[in-house]
């Protein structure tokens, strides 16, 4: 019994159908509990006022935006090395979810930044890196959409994912360098983890768990969808071939 058994689409689907209800319900419960807890039952921060409540959306989505890319990287590597189709499809399935997470992180960050920093957008290293990550996601998805042949698309996108990862990390440090060059030491980003007190911490943990579970549920569901698309296409191809043969016989 090894993990690679689930590279078989049928086995993967069977397991994923069994796990999914738990994930959906778990993420639903966690998100509802965490967000309600955070929204209604936590005090305001003495400096940030009620805007501190945005943290329950901002931090988990930012976390998942990065982790989704990381998951795509691992799945791409598995595809390149072991050529399991499920892996390539999982990477494809994760990308739009990652885009949504990045968008949520950017939007909530901008909305929080408006009253706190007095601006919607600042070219702060963190914000800038996220914007760049968003561009990488867009390119990745666009490449998947542009190529007809599924295996070619899987190969090309996984190489793009590897190269993109290197450049995303590189950009992260380049951006850090670039902005320090602009304003010496005047960093806008508050380090969130440090000044988070327990009152905010526990609902935040619940929300993070909710986002993780939701991500897993979405990715499993979407991977299943991609597998079915692939199967439908294969069946239809066989059908037309069969029809062609019959026509030749007649």
């Amino acid at each position: 019994m090894s993990l690679w058994e689930y590279a078989n689409p049928v086995k993967f689907l069977r397991l994923s159908e069994r796990v999914q209800p738990w994930l959906w319900w778990g993420s639903g419960v966690c998100l509802v509990v965490g967000l309600i807890w955070g929204f209604f039952f936590t005090p305001d921060d003495f400096r940030q006022g009620s805007t501190v409540k945005i943290i329950y959306l901002h931090v988990p989505s930012a976390l998942m935006a990065i982790n989704a890319w990381f998951m795509m990287l691992v799945a791409s590597l598995i595809w390149i090395v072991r050529r399991h189709h499920v892996s390539a499809l999982a990477a494809r399935a994760a990308a739009p979810v990652g885009i949504v997470m990045t968008l949520i992180a950017l939007f909530t960050g901008a909305i929080w930044g408006q009253p706190m920093w007095g601006t919607w957008w600042a070219w702060d290293p963190r914000l800038t890196s996220f914007l760049i990550l968003f561009l990488f996601y867009l390119g990745y998805v666009a490449l998947w959409e542009a190529i007809e042949d599924p295996d070619t698309a899987a190969d090309l996108t996984s190489i793009l994912c590897l190269v993109g990862t290197v450049f995303a990390v590189l950009s992260r440090y380049a951006v850090l360098f670039w902005n320090q060059g602009l304003h010496q030491g005047a960093s806008l980003s508050l380090d969130k983890e440090e000044n988070v007190a327990d009152v905010f911490y526990f609902p935040l943990l619940v929300c993070i768990a909710g986002f993780v579970l939701l991500f897993l549920a979405l990715v499993l569901y979407r991977t299943g969808t991609e597998i079915r698309v692939r199967r439908t296409r294969a069946l239809m191809a066989r059908e037309t071939r069969g029809a062609g043969l019959r026509a030749e016989e007649a």
Partner: peptide, 12 residues
Amino acid sequence: LLVLPLYVPTLI
């Protein structure tokens, strides 16, 4: 769309 994000570090 694919190449421009890769240009970021060089440009910076």
